[in-house]
């Protein structure tokens, strides 16, 4: 499996779910200034073709439903990167009634990028780290999601009707 992981790390397609203000840091990363294509990462249009789910910013419960649906549509192996303070502990929305505080309770986050917001340098740094981690088989959040499906669904069910918003939920 290690040889597969090695190749996986070299070519990653990223689905960026731009909910919050963090999306503004993505254009410099994608375009010629920082140019993430140097590292084999390009933005992808649909969840079914993507490897990385990048969540840039706060998630309201309303958007979390859509994110979970998106995540479950992606093919394994897949990785989740939480971007910015909002995904870590709520950030400046720590007392908002509408947004979730800790993303790792609902989705298996492989890597967090701290900061409000993280600069393109930090994003590049995280991508390089992710690439290395994937090549060495360190990041296996998608396996944890399958193994602990009930635990994740229990957390999600506290906020909304999981039957309606999950793919293939029995």
């Amino acid at each position: 499996m290690s040889i597969l992981n090695k190749f996986r790390g070299k070519s990653l397609w990223m689905l960026h779910y731009c909910t919050g203000c963090g999306a503004i840091e993505m254009p410099p990363v994608m375009t010629s200034r920082y140019d993430m294509e140097r590292f084999g990462i390009i933005p992808m249009a649909t969840p079914r073709q993507a490897d990385i789910l990048l969540i840039t910013g706060y998630l309201a419960v309303k958007t979390l439903k859509r994110v979970i649906r998106t995540y479950e549509q992606m093919h394994s192996p897949k990785w989740v990167v939480g971007f910015g303070a909002c995904t870590v502990n709520g950030g400046m929305y720590w007392d908002s009634y509408a947004t979730i505080k800790k993303l790792e309770l609902y989705l298996p986050v492989d890597l967090y990028i701290a900061g409000c917001m993280p600069r393109p340098e930090a994003i590049m740094d995280a991508f390089i780290e992710l690439r290395k981690g994937i090549s060495s088989g360190k990041y296996e959040g998608w396996k944890k999601y399958i193994e602990n499906y009930d635990w994740y669904k229990k957390n999600q069910a506290k906020l909304f009707d999981v039957k309606k918003w999950s793919v293939n939920y029995e």
Binding site: G82, N89, G90, W94, D95, S96, Y97, I100, K101, K102, E104, L105, P108, V109, D110, L111, Y112, I113, A114, A122, D125, A126, E129, G133, K138, Y139, G141, K144, N148, W151, K158, L159
Partner: peptide, 29 residues
């Protein structure tokens, strides 16, 4: 009269769990 903090406390967990199933990694600087 809608108590936002109370609602947040009930609905969303903000404390770290001890029996964390999956601990995400941090990019350390």
């Amino acid at each position: 009269d809608f108590n936002t903090r109370e609602y947040v406390k009930d609905m969303y967990e903000t404390e770290d769990r001890t029996e964390e199933i999956f601990k995400p990694r941090w990019k350390k600087y």
